[in-house]
Write a protein that binds this DNA or RNA. Structure first.
Ligand code: SF4
Ligand code: SF4
Lengths: 132, 132
DNA sequence: TTCAAATACTACTTCTTAGTGGTAATTAAA
DNA sequence: TTTAATTACCACTAAGAAGTAGTATTTGAA
């Protein structure tokens, strides 16, 4: 069970942007600072821009920045990069519910619930500060 | 965040074998019953056999069976198929500890702990029956 | 208006995982 | 001892994710 390379990159990128939200971050800077292949990074950035997770400013002196009003959770990031993880269930991929459930359902319930809840709670700007 | 196809197959296979532990399960049967490509399945089975997760009996009327004395947890299965998931951390892959931790560490702690604990607790034969 | 530095777009290559094919080795029943 | 059904082994193909290359487009400063 792993997070894809793309997801890991995305998480690192957004964390960095959050720590430098006073300025625009260029792909070049992000690539160098975070040690992510430049061309691969620009692909991800375009994707995030298209999905309105971030804002891009084109042309010279352009770059990327977070949208102040927008809340981005870890869950949103996973969803965009790897697909909705907690939705279609993993162990089995069978049609199932509480009545018709696979052998591992009960064991999977807590981890899955935790992933969903804690990643939905965790918005980028105040990551992990919530104490429920 | 996903479980690999191999992991999903493995989980299904072992669950089926557990439900039919009174008899040997042939690759042919498993392939047909669980709708897993025959050749791919035999690869997995050989791997599991080599790692002494299960026992194989060769020759005509042969097949596979669980080892009675052996406890297999979901965690063991994940580990064998996808690598030790909870060990090398996911969000970041950086050198880290409680003192030097990435932006997402706190948010990731609960899900990670749950995956580790609940999947280690969940042995194949009595999956999900533990109430902690 | 020019130009350099930035994002956007399209297409390709490389690497890993998933899946296939053929055959050898094994084994118990007939 | 023969034989058919089974696992084990080796090498290949297909598909998808990761990474690369080149170029078009955008834009603000000089
Ligand atoms: S029964 Fe539960 S664990 Fe199994 S596939 Fe469905 S939702 Fe997932
Ligand atoms: S700081 Fe925590 S969450 Fe981040 S990579 Fe390390 S162990 Fe994982």
């Amino acid at each position: 069970m792993v997070f894809s390379t793309t997801t890991q990159y995305a998480l690192k990128i957004l964390a960095y942007m959050n720590e430098h939200k006073e300025r625009l971050c260029s792909a070049k800077t992000l690539s160098e600072e975070l040690d992510i292949p430049y061309k691969y990074l620009t692909k991800i950035m375009t994707k995030f821009t298209k999905n309105e997770m971030i804002e891009s400013i084109q042309g010279r002196y352009g770059g990327f920045k977070l949208i102040d009003s927008k809340i981005i959770t870890i869950y949103d990031i996973l969803k965009l990069c790897d697909g909705d993880s907690a939705k279609a269930c993993i162990i089995g991929k069978i049609e199932c519910n509480e009545k018709k459930k696979c052998h591992y359902h009960d064991a999977w319930q807590k981890p899955r619930a935790s992933i969903k809840k804690d990643f939905l709670d965790a918005d980028l700007k105040s990551c992990g500060v919530k104490d429920s």
